[in-house]
């Protein structure tokens, strides 16, 4: 019973405080307190996550499940970064306090932590993000087919934006004078027209719908009507 009542009470109280604080000046400090508590909890959640990561990967290694070697690499990397970062191993001494080890800079690439960040972590995440270019190309190849009027419009818009987003747009239509009646046919003008009018209008419509959805869902949570995020036991 309390497992459900207390969280709902906390949610309801926090929600009402945040709303009131937006309109009443003296309640601002209450909302600050709520924010500070939220920040503390989100910091603690990192520890909770680390515990779960350990449990899952140790179980994988001990039971020799398929891919257990990846779990081992994960744990070794995790502990390496944790120890090097927490103990500031190899940190560059601070010129003002050269004798105080913990005053040293551990984020520079001259230290092991900074080096790992700069030359291992950074390239790896950039690679993952870079994969998007390849997936966008294969998705575009498959999805942009002129099957009906709507898809032809989509195709035409994609064509204009793809051209206008590069120097090719100016190369092809840059010769049309800005002040002529045909200036609207310039790729840069077409792009501005599409993004600032058509796309923004569509996006506003979707955003209004989403905002109303968020408001309704938030209200369901604050009023304790939607309890799906809580255990039923």
């Amino acid at each position: 019973m309390l497992q459900r009542t207390i969280p709902i009470a906390i949610l309801c109280l926090s929600g009402v405080i945040m709303i009131v604080a937006y309109f009443v000046s003296f309640a601002v400090s209450w909302s600050e307190t709520v924010n500070v508590w939220f920040n503390i909890l989100s910091a603690v959640a990192f520890v909770l996550g680390a515990g779960n990561l350990l449990a899952v990967n140790l179980e994988k290694i001990s039971s020799r499940r398929p891919g257990w070697a990846y779990a081992a690499i994960t744990l070794v990397s995790f502990f390496f970064m944790l120890v090097v970062g927490l103990l500031k191993l190899g940190a560059v001494p601070d010129p003002k306090n050269p004798l105080i080890h913990f005053a040293g800079d551990y984020e520079t690439s001259a230290s092991p932590y900074g080096w790992m960040y700069e030359y291992v972590f950074s390239p790896l995440t950039s690679t993952m993000f870079g994969l998007l270019a390849f997936y966008v190309a294969s998705a575009a190849f498959r999805a942009f087919r002129a099957k009906n009027v709507e898809s032809i419009l989509l195709l035409g818009t994609a064509f204009i934006i793809l051209i206008a987003q590069t120097a090719a747009g100016m190369f092809l239509t840059g010769w049309i004078p800005q002040d002529s009646v045909f200036a609207v046919l310039r790729f840069d003008s077409l792009k501005v027209g599409i993004t600032e009018h058509i796309q923004t209008a569509g996006m506003r419509a979707i955003t209004i719908g989403i905002a109303l959805g968020v408001a309704a869902t938030s209200l369901r949570l604050i009023l304790g009507i939607d309890k799906s995020y809580l255990s039923k036991n």
């Binding site: 998705a139 979707i206 989403i210 109303l212 959805g213 869902t217 369901r220 939607d226």
Partner: peptide
């Protein structure tokens, strides 16, 4: 573009209800 079905924006919130 890539999925069979998509719940768009507010439909997603309505879906949970």
């Amino acid at each position: 573009a890539a999925c069979d079905y998509t719940l768009i924006g507010e439909e997603f919130f309505a879906a949970s209800a």
